[in-house]
């Protein structure tokens, strides 16, 4: 018991590299990579990467006529500034199309469970696939891996049927109609299902890198599969799980198809993206609304990234460093 409790909080890096002479000097001090030239290139690439999004931002504060007739860069020589686009998409609405701000709650209510559920279940499976010894383990892992390419669109109809009508084989009812259509539940379940292959694939890569010695030590100490998971695997893989969770959060937040299909056509539970896709209007030309709407929809994912960035830095468990 005590052995595990000692091992668990140990920093992985020395354990993995088996080096005792880890220097504690700050990385910045021997900063030979961080040469001015390297920094210069990094900044240039970052700027190039940002220009298109910046263009979106500038466009979103211009008037419709300006957007349609002049390039967004002319804003700097001839600035005319309006917040009306934001006002329109966020707060104006009608009974048919409520304002965008109302959809934030739905997006959160969909995204949080649709991130938590698959991350937990996939971590379980990744642990089993990485550390349980059983026949056909590799085959199973690669089958799951291959499922990443199954196009989502093909799974929509059978899944909808399942949620709406239950599951019947012949006359036997294996699952009665669940009566959950029109709630968030089908959306959560669908996202969880579709996330499984990639979640298991990525998390497996992290979990399988946990030093064997740690796992052995836990077993010698009498820990069973459950205790090992709880006391060794989970604490060590929190950064990896967190970083995957961020990606899953982004994917679900930005998803259109699943929310649209499994929402059962109900506005009350539709996520932000569904509304954003309709902002173009029947005529498809309302660029001022789209640019503002698109920018609004970026804010949450970017905030999440900034808030959780330290997990990336702490390291994804860095699946990769071999000792």
């Amino acid at each position: 018991m005590t052995a595990i409790e000692e091992i668990a909080p140990v920093n992985l890096t020395p354990a993995r590299t088996k080096s005792k002479g880890m220097r504690l000097t700050s990385r910045k001090q021997n900063n030979i990579f961080g040469s001015p030239i390297a920094s210069f290139f990094a900044i240039v690439i970052a700027l190039v990467w940002t220009i298109p999004t910046f263009g979106l931002f500038i466009s979103s504060i211009r008037t419709p006529a300006d957007i349609n007739n002049t390039g967004w860069w002319t804003f700097f020589t001839n600035p005319s500034f309006t917040l009306e686009n934001y006002n329109t998409v966020l707060f104006e609405g009608s009974s048919v199309t409520p304002p965008l701000s109302l959809y934030f709650l739905n997006s959160f209510a969909i995204t949080i469970p649709a991130t938590v559920f698959p991350v937990v279940i996939a971590t379980f499976a990744a642990y089993a696939l990485a550390w349980f010894d059983f026949k056909g383990r590799d085959l199973l892992f690669y089958t799951i891996f291959a499922m990443q390419v199954i196009p989502l669109q093909l799974a929509l109809i059978p899944l909808l049927q399942l949620f709406a009508n239950g599951l019947k084989i012949g006359d036997a009812t294996l699952l009665p109609p669940l009566g959950i259509t029109g709630t968030y539940i089908p959306i959560w379940i669908a996202h969880t299902m579709f996330a499984m292959p990639i979640a298991i694939f990525l998390l497996h890569n992290f979990l399988s890198q946990i030093p064997r010695e740690l796992m052995e030590a836990a077993r010698v100490d009498g820990a069973d599969a459950f205790k090992t998971f709880r006391m060794v695997v989970l604490p060590l893989s929190i950064p990896a799980i967190a970083s995957f969770a961020i990606f899953q959060f982004l994917w679900v937040w930005n998803d259109l198809l699943v929310g649209l299909t499994f929402g059962g056509g109900k506005r009350e539970i539709a996520p932000l993206m569904v509304r954003l896709a309709e902002l173009t209007g029947t005529r498809g030309g309302d660029w001022e609304l789209l640019t503002a709407g698109a920018f609004v929809s970026i804010i949450v994912p970017v905030a999440v990234f900034f808030a959780l960035q330290r997990y990336f830095v702490r390291g994804l468990l860095a699946g990769s460093v071999k000792g």
Binding site: V96, L156, I157, L159, L160, Q161, F163, A164, N165, T181, L256, L260, T261, G264, G265, R267, V274, A277, E278, T280, T282
Partner: peptide, 20 residues
């Protein structure tokens, strides 16, 4: 309940086949 969607053409067959 007027439910407009720009994905109507693709979504309608899905909803009809899917039982919703």
């Amino acid at each position: 309940n007027w439910n407009g969607s720009k994905e109507f053409e693709a979504q309608l067959p899905v909803r009809v086949e899917g039982g919703t």
